Amino acid sequence: MNIKGKKVTLRALEREDMEELRNFYNDPEIANLLGGWTLPISSEQQNRWFDRIEYDDRNLRLAIETEEDGFIGVSNILNIDYKNRSAHHGILIGKKNMRGHGYGRDTVMATMKYAFEELQLNRLEGDILEHNIPSYNLFIQKCGWVEEGRKRDYAFRSNRYYDQIIVSILKKEYEKLCLELGYWKSEV
């Protein structure tokens, strides 16, 4: 089952996506903004990672696709806790020319819709490095997330430390946001 947004489709990652995904993560500009990966990844490492995730039902890694440009990034729902109905969410728009056109917002909205309405989760959380202003603005200003706190000097990038900002949204906050924005209103 694919997850449809207004501008993007979220679908299962395919082996054919691995080379482009590896290129995204090996790009120093992208790696500088991420809280995790900061080491170069080989094709073999990328393929072994893909083989390991195939049967992982607690971590969903979805390809972000547009009709015009195909695979542009990934959206994750990780560490799904079905008992407490919570998970971690993050996205990466790897094709730089696709940023600033609403694909990130539509990806987060479609991921939240799936997490809250299909998986019946109550809470999504995420983290953003403090110098990643576009991601902060996306989650906080455009998608209704709330800053919960910071992990001080969490990540070392470009010869200095940056805080990790912890953000979250609850199902009721997502529902209120959808009503206020009329985001899914055109659906039947």
Rank of each mutant, 00 (worst) to 15 (best):
M1N: 11
I3V: 12
G5Q: 10
K6N: 15
V8P: 02
V8N: 06
L10W: 11
L10G: 00
L10D: 12
A12E: 15
L13M: 15
L13E: 04
E14L: 11
R15Y: 10
D17H: 14
M18K: 01
E19C: 06
E20V: 04
N26G: 06
D27A: 00
D27Y: 00
I30G: 10
N32D: 14
L34R: 04
G36D: 07
E44D: 11
R48T: 14
W49E: 00
F50Q: 03
R52W: 00
E54I: 11
R58Y: 10
N59I: 07
R61L: 14
A63H: 03
A63G: 13
A63P: 06
I64D: 01
E65R: 10
E65P: 02
E65D: 05
T66H: 03
E67L: 09
E68I: 05
F71D: 10
G73Y: 11
V74I: 15
S75P: 02
S75C: 10
N76I: 05
L78H: 13
D81W: 09
N84D: 07
R85I: 03
R85L: 02
H88T: 12
I91H: 06
L92K: 07
K95Y: 01
M98K: 14
R99V: 09
G100A: 09
H101C: 07
R105F: 05
R105L: 10
D106F: 12
A115L: 11
F116L: 02
E117P: 06
G126H: 08
D127F: 09
P134Q: 08
Q141L: 08
W145V: 01
V146W: 11
V146F: 12
E147W: 07
E148M: 01
G149Y: 02
R152Y: 09
R152P: 06
A155P: 01
A155N: 12
F156W: 15
F156E: 01
R157F: 08
S158D: 15
N159C: 05
R160L: 12
R160V: 10
Y161E: 06
D163M: 05
Q164P: 05
I165F: 00
E173W: 08
E173Q: 15
E175H: 02
C178D: 03
E180L: 12
